[in-house]
Simulated scan of single mutants.
Amino acid sequence: MTPAASTLSPVLPADWRDFVALTKPRVMTLVVFTGLCGMLAAPVMINPVLGFVTILCIAVGAGGCGALNMWYEADLDRHMKRTRNRPLPAGRMERPAALQFGMTLCVASVLVLGLAVNVLAAAILALSILFYVVVYTIWLKRRTPQNIVIGGAAGAFPALIGWAAATGRVDALPVLMFAFVFLWTPPHFWSLALFVRPDYAAAGVPMLPVVAGEDATRRQVFLYTLPMAVAAIAPWPLHETGAIYGGAAVVLTGWFLYLAIRVGLSHERDPAQMIAERRLFRFSILYLFVMFGALVADRLILG
């Protein structure tokens, strides 16, 4: 069942900035970047116009997912400090408007990508939308502390979409990058969840720190970092990339692992530990950007 609209604030007039906020621009930036890198790392140079259409469709699809996520979770957002000023819980927009906006963006992005570029890329985009909205947001998030583990696949699809748009197929390298992002998501998100745990507890969301406790979450952050490190470095020894990516992967992943050890092996809740969690979260964002940037640099410079 969807949240009841009666739990939200009285509706005030929305403006264009509220519709932009529905698309979660910061999340969209990361999605667009990994999709662009997947396209640029492909062995086939895509037509610039079709490349622009691909990135636009990825952005629009991601924005639609954000809008549908906010539509469904409006009742949760009003209980959390970091989300209570979003358009729906703040009462600046009616829920049906967010639903219609999100559905329009999602459907349009898939149709345009399929008609203008290729069916495979559109099918992967459609799968990523369904995974994020239905599997993660509607099915898993309120039911299991492992929601982000399974739902993390939604954020791993853009590199596959970009590659498929350029080549019309799926090869080993984008699959490895999919695995990398999929395994990166739990330590990234749980390091955030550790220092916003009171928000999730107040909203009744069964995030791992709320259900299993902080010590168990820190251990999971460390444990998931191990296979993530393998997936991050694997393209180099498998000869899918060259030394530029390989060197960046070894150095950056080594630092990520160090930060994850500091988080995962501590049992103290003190200012130093909280700083370590914030450092891991912030570095994890930079890490993903630089890793995908190194992938493109490797392909463009070393071929």
Rank of each mutant, 00 (worst) to 15 (best):
L208N: 02
A234D: 07
V205S: 05
A260I: 03
D215W: 05
P235C: 02
V211G: 09
P198Q: 08
V196R: 14
L183I: 06
R269N: 15
M274F: 06
Q220N: 14
V211F: 00
H188E: 08
P271G: 09
V230S: 09
I244Q: 01
M228T: 00
F222W: 08
A193F: 08
F180M: 13
A201R: 14
Y200E: 12
A172S: 15
M274D: 15
F182D: 03
A260W: 01
V181T: 13
M207N: 01
V170H: 04
Y224D: 00
M177L: 15
V263Y: 00
F182N: 02
L238E: 11
A243Y: 06
V211N: 00
G168L: 11
F222N: 01
A165I: 11
F180T: 11
G168A: 11
A249C: 11
Y224P: 00
T217R: 01
P209K: 12
G242A: 10
L226S: 03
F182T: 02
P187D: 08
P186A: 01
Y258L: 15
E240C: 11
A202G: 06
P235D: 12
A154D: 09
M207W: 08
E214F: 00
I244A: 08
G151P: 11
M228S: 04
Q220H: 12
L176W: 11
D199N: 12
L173A: 13
A212S: 14
F189E: 08
F195Y: 15
P158S: 14
G204T: 05
F189S: 13
A179W: 04
A159H: 10
G168F: 09
A201L: 09
M274W: 05
W236G: 05
V175H: 00
T167I: 00
T253F: 07
L192P: 00
G204V: 06
F222M: 14
V175G: 01
L176Q: 07
G152Y: 04
G213T: 01
F256E: 13
W163C: 10
